[in-house]
């Protein structure tokens, strides 16, 4: 069920400002790809174009093609709402819905997308998703409690459960561990290893060790220069990026010379 992603010559604008230019990459199904790079280089922006979330900001536009198993998600007549059903997202800060219980948070996507569902189906989805997010054992006795009452790491796993409950093809993660403590981070990283068996995962991270630990492929983004748009410097096997990168700028970044 996981999908391949092909980006071809993506240019991303905020109004007239070109934020990221000429990004081209391919991401294989059932793999983990990490986006790394210094702050403000546009890696989160690129991530958000993959499920058309950047459009939430008014004035943001994209040119180029973004293909999901060959289907252009920016094609005419494509509804961004449907794109987002297919490509789930986990955010930097855990953001469970504060008015909902743990249970309702998990099924929020399903319920809001398609209205009535049978209780047994929902129960099944909740358990499957929470197990999938490695949270079931911790919360199964208090599903009716508010989601906001969980710890930060648990909240983030709840958000992952919420994202996978709608059975997406791809899971985007925008610095999912940056607001978490090391133990919660470890839990999420373990989870990513399990999730990649079912989903194509793209993760933005500031933490190069994390990229090295969880991903098979790594893309390095950088600003083309001061005041210039961000660009994709190179994308390659993680092993290669961290040991023997092709580009000098990648070498400089991973060896800590800037960023």
């Amino acid at each position: 069920m996981a999908k391949r992603i092909d980006a071809k010559n993506l240019n991303i604008y905020y109004g007239k400002f070109l934020a990221v230019s000429e990004v081209t990459f391919t991401i294989a199904p059932r793999s983990v790809t990490a986006f790394i790079g210094p702050s403000g280089c546009g890696k989160s922006t690129v991530l958000r174009t993959i499920n058309r979330m950047h459009e939430v900001i008014s004035g943001a536009t994209v040119e180029g093609d973004l293909l999901l198993d060959g289907e252009n998600i920016y094609g005419a007549g494509i509804d961004p709402v449907d794109v987002r059903r297919t490509i789930g997202m986990v955010f930097q800060r855990p953001n469970p819905f504060p008015t909902m219980s743990i249970y309702d948070n998990v099924v929020a996507g399903l319920k809001l997308q398609s209205g009535r569902l049978r209780k047994s189906e929902l129960d099944e989805t909740v358990e499957r998703s929470l197990r999938g997010a490695n949270l079931w054992e911790e919360v199964k006795s208090r599903l009716a409690k508010p989601g906001a009452g969980l710890s930060g790491g648990q909240q983030q796993r709840l958000c992952i459960a919420r994202a996978i409950a709608v059975e997406p093809q791809v899971l985007l993660m925008d610095e999912p561990c940056s607001a978490l403590d090391p133990i919660s981070t470890l839990a999420i990283e373990d989870l990513i290893q399990t999730l990649k068996e079912k989903y194509t995962i793209v993760i933005v991270t500031h933490n190069m060790q994390q990229a090295a630990r969880v991903s098979e492929r790594t893309a390095f983004f950088n600003l083309a220069g001061v005041g210039k748009p961000g660009q994709l410097v190179e994308i390659d096997d993680t092993q290669k990026i961290f040991t023997n990168p092709t580009d000098q700028r990648t070498e400089d970044y991973i060896s800590g010379r800037f960023g």
């Binding site: 069920m1 198993d69 289907e71 961004p80 093809q169």
Partner: peptide, 27 residues
């Protein structure tokens, strides 16, 4: 962009976007 995604894709890859709860009617 308000046309359902399924419209342009179903003839190629019917199960992709139509999977799960995203029936045309729902869209």
């Amino acid at each position: 962009s308000s046309e359902p995604l399924g419209v342009s894709t179903l003839d190629d890859t019917p199960e992709v976007f139509g999977a799960g709860s995203t029936s045309l009617d729902g869209n």
